[in-house]
Simulated assay, not measured.
Amino acid sequence: MEVNQNDHSYNPGDIVYVFYRNPHTQDVANVQSAAVVNNPENPGELAIFLYETYYPLTNDMAVYQSEAEAMEVYEQYFSFE
């Protein structure tokens, strides 16, 4: 299965980069690598596997193909200078 999001296609096994907020400190966010996998909870769908949790891969999720691309967007949203 392949998911096309923002002109990018994702397949199981791809490594992508996402923003991850610390669940204990909501004002802390980081760029984190994650794997694209087949969603075990919904066969036929893809998910992002991050910190032992599956997140459905949807068009609403901000997913980046490179760490550099993710960091550039991260700086735009989280830089307070």
Rank of each mutant, 00 (worst) to 15 (best):
F19P: 05
H24C: 00
Y77C: 04
I15M: 06
V73G: 00
P56D: 08
E45V: 00
V16A: 04
Q76C: 00
E72D: 14
E67S: 08
G13P: 05
Y74K: 10
N59W: 10
Y20P: 02
N38Q: 11
G13K: 13
N4A: 04
A47T: 04
F78H: 13
A47D: 07
S9R: 15
E75H: 01
G13C: 13
H24Q: 12
P40R: 12
G44Q: 11
S79I: 07
Y64N: 08
V16W: 12
P40F: 12
M71N: 15
E81N: 10
P40N: 08
Y51A: 05
S9A: 15
A47G: 12
E2R: 13
F19H: 14
Y17C: 01
E41Q: 09
E41W: 03
F78C: 05
Q32N: 02
G13M: 03
E2V: 13
N38A: 06
G44A: 08
Y17R: 11
Q32E: 13
F19I: 09
N30F: 06
Q32Y: 09
I15E: 15
N4M: 05
E41G: 09
V31D: 07
P12E: 15
P43M: 03
P12R: 06
N39V: 00
D60I: 05
N11R: 15
E52C: 08
P23L: 03
A35T: 06
Y54W: 11
Y54I: 01
N4K: 10
H8Y: 15
